[in-house]
Amino acid sequence: MSDLVRNIIRFAIFILLQVYLLNKIPFLHRFIAPYLYFLFILWLPFSISRMGLLVIGFITGISLDFFMMTPGLHAAACVLIAYLRPFIINILAPKDATGFSYREPSPRAMGWTPYIVYTLVLTLFHHSYMVLLEWLSFGSILDFIIKIVATTGISMLLIITTELLFPRRMKFRTNTA
């Protein structure tokens, strides 16, 4: 399966999962809102250009926004993490060439610790920006901080579960064995 087809399928699955499963979870607490869809952006291939990343990020966000009836909210957060992604990868990616024999960021390609740092940083940016925009018109500073921490915790739990349930072993075919 080519990268393009795989990512289109993944896009549909992530958006529908977010809209029809995670947003439908019965109310637990006001600080808990499970988010997973942005993992699509974190899983995009290394080879994609920075411009492409920004445009894909915007499309991902705005698609979810049309379902949630909040035009611009998720789009803004997705564009932010799409812009920051290459910088974080540059810092965390292994310096030797073996790291780049993988197509996309995964615990196998980067190692568990760097991968978790990578997802944690981008999740934190995504949620902080989104919650900030959401609460600009409403709410107090303490609520704002608790909500960022709680939603980031839930998202990290979901991301790690996803990684353990669906390990991706995708390697470029090279002649280095």
């Binding site: 611009g72 789009a75 803004a76 564009v79």
Partner: peptide
């Protein structure tokens, strides 16, 4: 481009 997309998104939102 990043700034442009951000501004578009925020314009939609506000």
């Amino acid at each position: 481009t990043f700034l442009l997309l951000q501004v578009t998104a925020l314009w939609f939102l506000f």
